[in-house]
């Protein structure tokens, strides 16, 4: 009993992520992506004997019935059993088929088909186009196979990227290998604010950095990026150097510079305008946040000349990016 009282306890984070992705896919995948296109149709004037032969040779348990190439019924194993019990195999299919059956369209999301399977308790759904012409057939097995295929494709695409990237440092031999990413940041470009940092974080994850390291670098880069957007006259440059043992982030600009670095480092001190505060920034926490996220912090500035921020995050052996 106690095992059932809290089923969530047996679900790990990974399980939940998998379930979530499968559920998302049920909304994303279209019926046409998972259905079987090789569909065997019957005609109302054919005999139930033909249905039996079709089921037996093709090893299927149901088939759509079409009149003038549009869907008019389905014959299932149940219909066939009814017919067999009456020893009535010479009857016409129209006598035993289920007329006006449920169907689904190729463009519908898979979740709609799942709902129909649950509500109708049918084992298969004919897939028809707008003219009711049968273009495929869908079983629960098709959906399961389709979801698995999609999950695997997803997994492979990101795994492949990660695999290629994470072997970068091993595959290239030098006395000291590093990867340098550069981003030009425009002043006042609020709508793209954070785009560079998103790319930096993604790159680090692909290179095999732990989520914790990627998060710390992402936050430091983001605050630095927003500072360049908010405060600089001509924008600036973010340069990230990735090495197996450390990540160095540099943000530099050519003005206006910081008048008093000690003051700028005080939590809550800000020179930002009301407009910038409305964006949720300029609370005087940016530099403080950066410092909190990094292992080494250096800030140099000359008023009228520009500012140069250089921070480092060291990888512990178990957190190595390569």
């Amino acid at each position: 009993m106690s095992d059932n009282s809290n089923p969530q306890r047996i679900l790990t984070d990974q399980d939940i992520q998998q379930i979530t992705r499968a559920e998302e896919l049920a909304y994303e995948l279209k019926v046409e992506e998972v259905m079987s296109r090789d569909v065997q149709c019957l005609h109302p004037d054919m005999l139930m004997h033909d249905a039996l032969e079709l089921f037996r040779t093709k090893r299927i348990s149901g088939a759509p019935v079409t009149c003038d190439s549009s869907l008019c019924g389905v014959v299932s194993m149940e219909d066939l059993i009814r017919c067999l019990l009456k020893q009535d195999l010479d009857a016409r299919i129209s006598d035993y088929m289920t007329p006006n059956p449920f169907f689904i369209h190729p463009q519908d999301p898979v979740i709609e088909a799942l709902k129909l399977f649950v509500s109708t308790r049918h084992g298969r759904l004919p897939v028809v186009d707008q003219d009711r012409k049968v273009v495929g057939i869908l079983t629960k097995g098709d959906i399961t196979a389709g979801l698995l295929r999609a999950l695997q494709k997803d997994f492979h695409a990101e795994e492949l990227r990660r695999y290629r990237a994470s072997h970068l440092f091993e595959d290239i031999v030098s006395d000291r290998t590093s990867l340098i990413l550069r981003y030009q940041i425009k002043p006042r470009d609020f709508s793209h604010g954070g785009a560079a940092s998103s790319n930096i974080k993604r790159a680090l994850l692909r290179l095999g950095a732990t989520p914790n390291i990627a998060r710390r670098c992402g936050i430091a880069a983001y605050e630095a990026e927003m500072n360049l957007i908010i405060h600089t006259t001509n924008g600036g440059m973010i340069r990230v150097e990735i090495e197996p043992h450390q990540i160095t982030i540099e943000a530099s600009d050519d003005g206006p510079g910081i008048r008093d670095i000690d003051l700028a480092m005080q939590p809550g001190y800000s020179t930002a305008s009301e407009e910038i505060r409305e964006l949720g920034f300029g609370a005087g926490m940016g530099l403080v946040n950066i410092k909190r996220c990094v292992d080494q912090f250096r800030l140099e500035s000359t008023w009228g000349k520009g500012t140069r921020l250089k921070v480092r995050i060291f990888m512990k052996p178990e957190e190595s990016a390569a």
Binding site: F190, S191, G193, G194, A195, S197, S198, K201, R215, G218, I219, Y222, M226, L279, G280, F281
Partner: peptide, 11 residues
């Protein structure tokens, strides 16, 4: 604003 989403990604 979009910064909320950016912040969410970072954090």
């Amino acid at each position: 604003n979009p910064q909320v989403v950016r912040t969410a990604v970072m954090a």
